[in-house]
Design a protein around this nucleic acid. Sequence first.
DNA 1: TTTTAGTTTATAATGATTACAGATTAGTAA
DNA 2: TTACTAATCTGTAATCATTATAAACTAAAA
Lengths: 150, 150
Amino acid sequence: MRSVEDLVRLFRERGYKVTPQRRLIFELLAGDRSHPTAEEIYQRVRAVMPEVSRTTVYNTLRELITLGELRPVENLSEGGTRYDTNTTHHHHLFCVQCHALIDIDREFEGIELPPEEAAGFRLVNYQVTFYGYCPDCQRADGGRPSQGKE
Amino acid sequence: MRSVEDLVRLFRERGYKVTPQRRLIFELLAGDRSHPTAEEIYQRVRAVMPEVSRTTVYNTLRELITLGELRPVENLSEGGTRYDTNTTHHHHLFCVQCHALIDIDREFEGIELPPEEAAGFRLVNYQVTFYGYCPDCQRADGGRPSQGKE
DNA sequence: TTTTAGTTTATAATGATTACAGATTAGTAA
DNA sequence: TTACTAATCTGTAATCATTATAAACTAAAA
């Protein structure tokens, strides 16, 4: 995702207006690496502009996705879709206990699917997700799951 | 996922009763490789036993998941969670157009995350998803993406 | 400043899933 | 086989994330 000023420019170029609500959402997302949900973004927005509606947050997220500046992450936890401000090809490291999600920005060799395994697919991309216990959760209880109601 | 008779045995062992509804769901899932949604399973059930309720389908799916005989797949399409009868470690090949989902049962070398990249995580698993166009969708429109490029 | 098309808000609607309550039944023991 | 009872089933209501709608509002161009 680009800088706030680049996003402002991009929106204007595409005929979208730049409202205070949208600008605030840009500011909150521009430096974010936490992969927040719509609800989390909404709460952060409300802390600054209490009158903003959920609909506006959802609409702005959808617009950013349409423009390629934001990506929904495949559902890794309850509580709704998480959004990724890193729109380049990358991978994920996920804590199965606290649901922390960290970007892995390097490439992996040896992840090719030979034609006989590709079932005739024309491949365009791949994505690796690593599952484990983050340092905090390892300290908290020896790395055993405890948050979920299992 | 085990055979129907093994599932029946497992349910009885654990104190779950084996009803005609559950047995039918076992039969429909036991040989399935299509990663169906709850709704799809419900429709297949209804084709045989029209009076079965959605709730029963959801409940049985939840029980199978609890017993480790079924796994929810990270959301790869609209229309709700898909369920995977393959509960072993494996990977996925996903058609971004028609949402076909195929299991890749082999292992990949070279997918290790060195400690300095693992952010202190204790890793327990990883999962690769390949994205592409399946043979049918390539034929249908030359395999061109209909929206964004990758 | 005026204009107007795009935006915002509040609320209703939707779709997937879960909770609930009363009716039914699988499995067991007599 | 019958009776018993806890588990299960069905239908409906509730919940949660998200989208649709419509009237009020406003950014940005004229």
